[in-house]
Amino acid sequence: MRLTRLQKALWAAAGIAVLAYGALLWGPYRAPALVSEAPFRPTFSLPDDAGRLYSPADFAGKHLLVFFGFTNCPDVCPTTLSEVAQVIDDLGPDADKVQPLFISIDPERDRRLGLAAFTAAFHPAIIGLAGDADQTRAAADSFRIHFAREDDAAAPDGYTMSHSPALYLIGPEGDWLRQFTYGTPASEILADLKSRL
């Protein structure tokens, strides 16, 4: 049987792949390749409307459901907070094991407009946090999320905010567990949480 050049190349590639796989399984690099990374523990230090400072340690033992947003946002933020409220309602007796947090990425304006009344309108369990510019940036960097102020003459006060719209789930020890992308139905979030509680 004569092999074409392409077939030879493919067999050679297959051979290399087998050797590489063997090296992964038995070689000295096995351990580092399979050991997971150190836990990722995002952190924050931010006050609520009443000025009480919160950090992850205040919620030790609970799962955190964290959303970064701004209260002047008419579409994405109310939609997500409505879903969070639904999830908390549907958790029933397990609701006290999950703390929903709304972290303002537009803190100055949100404090002026009133953050607690806004979050309470969706669910009284949601704590709204709004720090100063540095605290806010530090929290966002820690969660590795993006937010930016975008000048828009047509927007209220001449600007709007772009931001990562996902929900982040933090475990009872402060470990980052997963994110729920924007638009994940409340039922899916609920099922995931129930499997962990």
Binding site: V76, H146, S164, P165
Partner: peptide, 10 residues
């Protein structure tokens, strides 16, 4: 509302 590369803008 547009979500591009995980960033929502409007």
């Amino acid at each position: 509302t547009v979500v591009t590369d995980g960033i929502a803008s409007m």
